[in-house]
Design a protein around this nucleic acid. Structure first.
Length: 452
RNA sequence: GUGGUUGUAGUUCAGUUGGUUAGAACGCCUGAUUGUGGUUCAGGAGGUCGCCGGUUCGAGUCCGGUCUUCCACCCCA
């Protein structure tokens, strides 16, 4: 077989021991908090039927789905006419499965398929990779992890409040203070669009509004007038966006402009819940210009942004009133959030916020002078491990220099040396690699010393 | 999907208007050190210059294609 240079598919990465340790640290922190809030873990397959995935993410999303060609002779169901008719007709004949694009739609499928076994409200979390055929950039990968927590089967806004507290706990545990949790309500965006005279064009309105902090007010105004918006009403709206005040005052202001509505009353109720937790210093900012994508959100939406790192959104979520409806199960409302593991990693890395003690090295290495010493070491190895220590033995008898170098490179803090004297005296040299000190100790003394 | 950008040793990068045998630092290996790593010193190995093709007497250098990287759109974790 011809050899070839190995390479990775675009937008995918390997993770070495150090990176993996850091990723596990983030995942463990998030999982711990999911469990703390009463969520249970589920897992779903990497691939789903294409019929489950398509049409859930809009036309853009469908293009970004990775499709899997059918097994075996994947052309056998198609003919040249299908080929000439283009990919739209050919695709369903050669592909029936795709890689999941997010965790929410597979979860909706899971809920529908298991509705009779599930007790509602159902609180599930899921930490798995998803795939998007997007063009990669910094912080944008074709394979990345989402850490989702959703509550379905409950309309209560207390769930939104719970997720808000959860987000704060996660970032607090990760030691990251530079985030801001932005909140808005889909209904307010709709009302604002109608106020601006864009009835029927609410979605395009949201798309433009979402670019506000990127392209600025003038460009946004320009684009919205291009859509047919009323200029003076638009000025009213931008005025509200610029209003810097506490969140409660902002609700009053928006009601003043477009009247009381489902959005404003739900936001009030949400803030009332948060208030009752009696937890000060929540980093929540009501931002009426926040317009998250994902067409299925219908209620409160939120997004966590890093203020000190240029990376975009690191957590997002919101309420979807009828996600399971597309699978024939009506009236199940849900609310969820998704932590972007890969982006959180990039933030912690850039700000140097990973704990220094993440290295997964052994506590002690057993080094030896010859094969007989190595055999003797296996008994000691077993004693070290059964007392709870992380221990390893160098697997070949070779020069001391090489064995010590191994311990040094792997940051193993202690080396236990076995020679013929040691075996005779039942006392072994234990070297502290940090300060270079060394003493002769029995195996019991060593386990004792290292266990502290 | 549209437009641009990047690629040279394990890593970070030099490499002149196209011209002998493509360099440095760090890392790696060996020795100085026959019971001990990190420091020091001496020596050594390591390159299809992303890949394919073209122009040329001659290409790391110029041209085309392709893959990859990063960036701006679009969208998003």
């Amino acid at each position: 077989m011809a050899t070839s240079k190995p390479s990775l598919p675009k937008g995918t990465r390997d993770f070495g021991p150090e990176q993996s340790a850091k990723r596990s640290y983030i995942i463990d922190t998030i999982k711990k908090n999911f469990l703390k809030y009463g969520f249970s873990q589920i897992e779903t397959p990497a691939m789903e039927q294409l019929s489950v995935l398509t049409g859930k993410y809009g036309d853009e999303g469908d293009q970004l789905l990775f499709k899997i060609v059918n097994s075996g002779d994947f052309l056998k169901k198609s003919n040249t006419q299908d080929y000439e008719a283009g990919s739209g007709q050919l695709l369903p004949k050669i592909s029936e499965k795709g890689l999941r694009y997010d965790l929410t739609v597979p979860f909706a499928r899971f809920v529908v398929m298991n509705q009779h076994e599930i007790t509602f409200p159902f609180k599930r979390f899921q930490v798995q990779p998803v795939w998007r055929a997007d063009r990669p950039q910094k912080g944008r990968y074709r394979e990345f992890y989402q850490c989702d927590a959703d509550i379905v089967g409950s309309n209560s806004l207390l769930n939104e409040a719970e997720l808000t507290m959860l987000i704060h706990d996660v970032y607090s545990d990760l030691g990251y203070k530079g985030f801001v949790l932005k909140i808005n309500h889909r209904e307010i965006l709709m009302e604002l669009a109608r106020y601006a005279g864009l009835k029927g064009k609410e979605m395009p309105f949201c798309v433009v509004i979402d670019k506000l902090d990127k392209i600025g007010q003038e460009k946004v105004t320009e684009e919205l007038i291009g859509l047919g918006a009323n200029e003076s009403k638009l000025a009213d709206i931008l005025n509200v966006f610029n209003f810097i005040h506490d969140n409660i005052s902002k609700i009053a202001l928006i009601e003043n402009l477009i009247g009381s509505n489902r959005g404003s009353s739900e936001l009030s109720e949400y803030f009332n819940y948060l208030n009752a937790y009696e937890q000060g210093e929540l980093k929540i900012e009501l931002d009426f210009s926040l317009a998250r994508g994902l067409s299925y959100y219908t209620g409160i939406i939120f997004e966590v942004k890093a203020t000190d790192v240029q990376i975009g959104s690191i957590t997002g979520g919101g309420r979807y009133d009828n996600l399971t409806g597309v699978f024939g199960m009506e009236g199940t409302s849900g609310v969820g959030i998704s932590f972007g593991l890969d982006r959180i990693y990039d933030v912690l890395e850039e700000l140097n916020l990973f704990p220094s003690a993440l290295a997964q090295s052994s506590d002690v290495l057993i080094a030896h002078f010859d094969e007989q010493c190595m055999y003797h070491g296996l008994g000691l190895l077993q004693k070290l491990r059964s007392s709870g220590l992380r221990a390893e033995i160098f697997p070949e008898s070779t020069k001391m220099k090489k064995q010590f170098n191994y311990a040094d490179k792997k940051d193993i803090p202690f080396v236990l040396v076995i020679g013929s004297d040691e075996i005779a005296n039942k006392k072994y040299s234990l070297k502290n690699m940090k300060d270079g000190s060394q003493e002769m100790l029995s195996i019991d003394q060593i386990t004792e010393a290292l266990s502290n």
